[in-house]
Design a protein around this nucleic acid. Structure first.
Lengths: 193, 193
DNA sequence: CGTCTATTTGAATGTACTCAAAAGCGGTGG
DNA sequence: CCACCGCTTTTGAGTACATTCAAATAGACG
């Protein structure tokens, strides 16, 4: 049950056996069925979540009722609502299971105590966030620099295995276009081959 | 010279006088004149940079030669090229002074030693990055959810003091639109009052 | 099987873009 | 100090890419 998360952490820090026990003791397993919500915008959500199995989407609903996917989370990724976690304010985003999901949750006050007891976890999350920062910066510049078709090509090249597990509607929403537009882009691309 | 950066750090961690000395000893002051580059895409850049005075823009040049501003940095903000800093690979972005600038730089190997000697700095940058994460997520969803006019309104409401220091061309580039479009949006808005 | 959702396709629309040119503004050097 | 040069901003005309709305088809799930 803890294999994947311990490997995830071992990428950046080494834990002693005692520290490993201490860490796993704060993890709360949780499962969600497809289409269940981990977070609904407006709720306070005080957990950081590691995805052990399955996939989720984090999305925002705009003033016109349109949904926009801000991020996906698959096995071996972390998710949640950072704003609500940090501020204690209502969450900005919805996080919904796209498949049946197994999660490991860390509650805020327990994570804060963990940071105090084992400062290596400050380091771990620092490094994790540095990598997230790079990805998000890239997402921002890609959204400004690339056409819809280029963004789609980039997506399927970078995440070929995930693409298969997502509907076109979800991918379109992540790319910032309508499902109709993505369908047309795919038709065009098929014609080119 | 170190007042602003020490206050910046004191937002999240407390340093002893010795730790403060240790920290300031790794800071390298650097000044740039308006239009000088801190980083050029393609260079390796191994510094994290605190802006003591002035402003900079981080931008990306796309395949058509168009520039897109990924972030601004003003007094009391941090900047650099996280990708190059972390990976040692050539920088993805250009960072250019928009005004005369005073910076405090921390070299990578010195920061790594600082993390080891004073783990509180792991914590400091973790918290800093959490806040950056929230901002960037918001930027991504705003870019997908809002019209150009709404993004402009949001920008001038959130950064009214910075707006005055930026040309419309820079703001347009940050908002992901052309200067012509921003000019038209402003004309429209003026008509509404 | 039947229902609900996703995908495709078409037609009309719209928002922002490109290209072009004029006007405005700021900085620099004579 | 003024004149000039270059860059920014404005404005117009035409265009392109993606959208909306609508409807048909395909596919998934109970």
């Amino acid at each position: 049950m803890y294999d994947l998360i311990l490997k995830n952490i071992a990428r950046f820090i080494q834990l002693t056996p005692e520290e490993t026990d201490r860490f796993t003791s704060v993890l709360k397993p949780r499962t969600l069925r497809k289409r269940q919500y981990l977070v609904q915008a407006g709720d306070v959500f005080r957990y950081e979540c590691f995805v052990n199995k399955g996939s989720l989407r984090t999305y925002h609903v705009d003033n016109n009722g349109q949904e926009h996917i801000v991020m996906f989370a698959f096995e071996d990724w972390w998710t949640g609502d950072m704003y609500s976690f940090l501020s204690g304010q209502p969450a900005l985003y919805n996080v919904e299971a796209l498949e049946d999901v197994e999660l490991l949750l860390i509650e805020k006050s327990q994570l804060e105590q963990l940071y105090i007891d084992i400062p290596k976890f400050d380091r771990f999350f620092r490094v994790l966030l540095q990598n997230a920062y790079i990805s998000m910066q890239r997402r921002i510049s890609d959204n400004m620099s690339l056409t819809a078709e280029e963004r789609y090509l980039d997506f399927i090249n970078r995440y070929p295995h995930f693409e298969q597990r997502l509907s076109q509607k979800q991918i379109a929403s992540y790319l910032g276009i309508t499902p109709e537009s993505l369908s047309r882009i795919r038709r065009q691309m098929a014609g080119k081959n």
